[in-house]
């Protein structure tokens, strides 16, 4: 139960920082999501993001920072068996579900629905 509260706080804080950057600089949402992905993979260099996921739970997996975390984590997990080559082979191991789901759903919904604006 406490994890739900932590999730609320963590995800809200990430969005708050993003909103502050968006309002106070000229960066677009595209810049900000890119910065956050890079930041997420940076935090995993010393296992910091792993600790956050353990404490916070689902709230840490929802923001885009977890995308970078999962990219580097899949790569590092593969290096155990493949050596440095595994960094390239295992890059999409964990994120594949999210990217595939986004592609599949957006493709079929585009076929079904009409654009409206």
């Amino acid at each position: 139960m406490i994890k739900i509260f932590y999730s609320f706080l963590f995800c809200g804080a990430v969005c708050l920082i993003a909103q502050l950057i968006l309002d106070n600089t000229k960066l677009t949402p595209g810049h900000i999501t890119s910065i956050f992905v890079v930041f997420g993979s940076f935090l995993d260099v010393f296992n910091i993001y792993d600790m956050i996921v353990e404490v916070v739970g689902g709230g840490a997996m929802v923001p885009i920072t977890s995308f970078g975390h999962q990219l580097i984590h899949g790569g590092l997990a593969k290096t155990v068996s493949m050596g440095p080559l595994g960094m390239i082979m295992g890059m999409f191991d964990l994120t594949a579900s999210g990217i595939s789901a986004a592609i599949i759903f957006s493709f079929f919904f585009t076929l079904i629905f009409k654009p409206r604006n």
Partner: peptide
């Protein structure tokens, strides 16, 4: 942004 983002995160944990 804090409230909406926090709700999405909490929804993730609840799910």
């Amino acid at each position: 942004a804090f409230l909406v983002g926090g709700s999405v995160g909490a929804l993730g944990e609840v799910l």
